[in-house]
């Protein structure tokens, strides 16, 4: 089980957060704190790289949904990338695939981030 959450600053407005293989009740709070910390420093364009993610619980979903509007209110966006079909399925079951911005991979997400951010 890899519940690690790491991050990388791309520029003054952009950060990438990389999940481990699980985002569940045990580390959802940490995910929320990491995103909020980036936003508090002006990084409102946030890419969440889920390439390694194998399990996403409802608490993990909540940790992301609770932060999206903060980025949007500040001209940024939270973009998820590298989703497996099962993770994408869980988001679609909750009808969140329309609400969230989802990109195929990190490079696409970075490009999209520059285009969509104001």
């Amino acid at each position: 089980m890899d519940q690690s959450i790491s991050s990388e600053i791309i520029d003054d407005y952009t950060a990438v957060i990389v999940t481990g293989s699980e985002l569940d009740n045990n580390n959802a709070h940490e995910m929320f704190e990491v995103i909020a910390e980036k936003q508090s420093k002006g990084h409102f364009r946030i890419i969440i790289d889920m390439q390694k993610l194998e399990f996403l619980s409802s608490a993990g979903v909540g940790s992301i949904i609770g932060t999206v509007e903060t980025s949007r209110e500040n001209g940024g966006e939270i973009i998820l990338c590298g989703l497996s079909p099962t993770i994408e399925h869980i988001l679609s079951v909750l009808d969140l695939d329309d609400y969230l911005t989802i990109a195929k991979d990190k490079e696409t997400a970075l490009t999209l981030s520059r285009e969509t951010s104001k």
Partner: peptide
Amino acid sequence: GFNPHQAGLSKQKRGFGLELIHRL
């Protein structure tokens, strides 16, 4: 009665679990 856009706008962090269970 879950509205994802409303959940996002209200910065909702909890309450997704029961919704998910019922939908699955």
